[in-house]
Simulated assay, not measured.
Amino acid sequence: MRPRVWCGVLGLLALSATACGSSGAPKADSPEASGSTAGFPVSVADCEGAKTTFDSAPRRIVTSNASALETLLWLGAGDRVAGTGFPPGKGTMPAALAERAAKVPVLGKTVIPKEKLLGSGADVYIDSFSSMKNMSGAGDAPTPREFAAAGIKHVFLRSSACAAAQKGPRTDLSGVTADIEELGKITGTSRRAAELVAGMRKKTEAVRDALKDVPPDKRPTYFYFDFDAGTKQPLAVCGKQVANAVITQAGARNVFGDCDGDFKPVGWEDVVAKNPDWIQLGVRNRGGEAANEKAFDEAAEFLRTFPATKGLTAVKENRFLRIGAERTTIGGVRSADTVRDIAHTIHPDRVK
């Protein structure tokens, strides 16, 4: 794939979701098992099934990016985060988490350099994408032996890091909720994780119930337009990307949901052939409402004036969704809010 496109994808996967509703305010840092072995040992598996065991909750955590950091903040484990790569951009964290997130040391503006990660004093590294095939050129990652020599346990967020290994498309948020529950086990915050997951399921189940009598083949078609990946060649989100789960649970049909993998470059002729009912303007957070709206306007204007797309049904009828890229393509606590927001837009009479 073109370097520019994967650079954009890497940045997108690295960022946290933009502000929206939440599953309850985050609690103060008070993990149930902090400083103790209550509830331990616990074991978690990587993408290939190899297990890592924890005899107690970690005291120094390093995260690969802002999305992993945000999940730990929601769990109330933020005080134990000793550093992160791909730090959250301005305006990308929920207001309730922003102040705490800003205090986390930045070990790398992008991928954390190998030497800095190994010398960070961390006892666990939460990795959102290091094992993904499309991230193989993202940096010189430590080997399992080097992690072990540094005393760092390596844990993957499987909903993103293991996407390529998943069998079939993702149609629900079970992988995301499993990650939250797993991080709760590791950090001794399982009760908080259960609360967050319950809140997410309440929202997605309400959407499911509202749409239960809409046959799958009658649900509107949907194209996620990754504006920031470039307009010369569109980048589609495929069946294994979390966005496919979000779109499907929201009661729509991703027009590229049948392509294998998570992202795939396609041609504008492919988009035209699909003629989607709805188009989401996938724009990265610009750090403020005015800047975000300007970017959404630019994405919509491109579709209205580009010869290949100006005749599409969604374009002619102004069926655009202005929902940030990070909110859709990065799994986390707020993914359920995105499901609800999309569902309300495309099924306003059913999802209030």
Rank of each mutant, 00 (worst) to 15 (best):
N254K: 02
G35S: 04
G76Y: 01
E317K: 14
G24D: 11
L235K: 00
F54Q: 06
E99D: 14
P58M: 00
A68P: 02
G39S: 11
D172T: 07
A96N: 08
I186A: 03
A165R: 09
M132R: 07
P144L: 05
T18I: 08
T305L: 15
S30R: 14
L10G: 12
L12Q: 07
T18Q: 15
N318V: 03
L157R: 09
K232S: 13
V124R: 02
G76C: 01
S190I: 15
D140L: 14
D277L: 06
A77F: 05
I247N: 03
G175A: 11
A68C: 12
A343R: 06
K153M: 09
S67M: 12
D260W: 01
K316F: 05
A101D: 10
A45P: 10
I247Q: 03
A343C: 06
P348L: 04
A325W: 12
W74T: 00
A290R: 12
G257E: 09
T204W: 02
L12F: 10
V242T: 06
K202L: 10
E298D: 13
A193N: 06
L13G: 04
D277F: 08
A193P: 13
V42C: 13
S23Q: 14
G251P: 02
D29W: 05
S120E: 09
S130K: 09
R284M: 12
G119W: 06
V242E: 00
A28L: 10
C20I: 05
G261S: 03
L10N: 10
P31F: 01
A148Q: 15
G8S: 12
C7G: 12
R284E: 07
G324L: 12
V272K: 10
D228P: 04
A252M: 03
A291E: 14
A250T: 01
V62Q: 06
D127S: 09
K116T: 15
D209R: 14
V106D: 13
A194D: 11
G139L: 11
E301Q: 12
V271C: 08
E182D: 08
R201K: 15
F54L: 07
E48R: 14
A291N: 08
A295K: 14
L196P: 10
E182M: 15
